[in-house]
């Protein structure tokens, strides 16, 4: 294990397996005659297969792996949005996942979406109004904040989403692919904010394909490969092994 004797454990995953059902066709479909016991064409995908780790206070953990390796599924399970089929995840507080997107409405102005997003993350109305200014300032959207969100470029809406999500001092924050967007300046600001959260004794999980972001913000990396934890260690070592693997 790495030099993780520093902080108290915040997230513990014990032999986590996650399966989900999908409707498949063709060869993948397994027909069952019993209508009541199984639906036709349902196939169980084993997305995560036996992942265990202990995350501690002050750790910022990069999660890397190929597309479809189960990174996002694992994050969703840590956030309590997906129940593990086997194994258990423990956490010190309810982990926040950057999932504001689902609550936001394109027809409405950025302004209203900031309030809505804050409420979606569990703020009270008073807190949402209090953090409103910080969020708008952080996003750097300026006068665009009055425009309907559907007129935003993808980079702009991603910036707004990220700003809403990191506005609160989460004890455990899960960030999924959010840093890949935005311009250089915004990216630097985002990375600084993640370091800040980490220093406030929080734990940050960062899923990204950008090895640069991970190197700059994380002090530990988990490499997930085909649903299994392939490597767990300091960023330099894991990224090197990951790159060598191809």
């Amino acid at each position: 294990m790495t030099e993780s004797t520093l902080g108290m454990p915040t997230v513990v995953a014990n032999d986590v397996h996650i399966h989900y059902k999908t409707f498949a066709s063709g060869k993948a479909a397994q027909n069952s005659r019993n209508l009541l016991r199984r639906q036709r064409g349902v196939r169980v995908v084993k997305a995560v297969r036996g992942v265990s780790f202990v995350a501690r206070e002050g750790e910022s953990i990069g999660v890397i792996g190929h597309n479809g390796s189960g990174k996002s599924t694992l994050m969703r399970a840590i956030a309590g949005l997906q129940a593990p089929a086997k194994g258990t995840i423990y956490a010190s507080s309810r982990p926040a996942l950057l999932g504001v997107n689902a609550a936001l409405l394109g027809e409405l102005s950025g302004q209203k979406n900031v309030i809505l997003g804050s409420l979606a993350l569990g703020h009270s109305m008073a807190e949402a109004e209090e953090t409103y200014k910080d969020i708008v300032d952080f996003s750097g959207l300026g006068e665009f904040i009055d425009m309907p969100m559907k007129t935003y470029s993808s980079g702009m809406s991603a910036r707004l989403r990220f700003s809403i999500a990191v506005s609160r001092d989460h004890r455990i924050l899960l960030v999924d692919e959010a840093l890949a967007v935005g311009d250089k300046e915004f990216r630097a600001k985002s990375e600084a904010r993640i370091r800040e959260l980490r220093e406030q004794a929080g734990t940050v999980f960062l899923v990204s394909h950008s090895m640069g972001s991970i190197r700059d913000t994380c002090n530990r990396v988990l490499w997930i490969d085909h649903g299994e934890l392939k490597m767990d260690g300091p960023p330099e070592d894991v990224i090197e092994a990951y790159k060598a693997h191809g």
């Binding site: 108290m8 454990p9 915040t10 997230v11 513990v12 995953a13 014990n14 032999d15 265990s52 202990v54 399970a77 840590i78 956030a79 309590g80 949005l81 129940a83 258990t88 995840i89 423990y90 956490a91 010190s92 309810r94 982990p95």
Partner: peptide
């Protein structure tokens, strides 16, 4: 892992 979680007073997610 169960013991680590117990000692730190963590709760099961979800």
């Amino acid at each position: 892992y169960e013991a680590i979680a117990r000692e730190a007073g963590l709760e099961r997610v979800g």
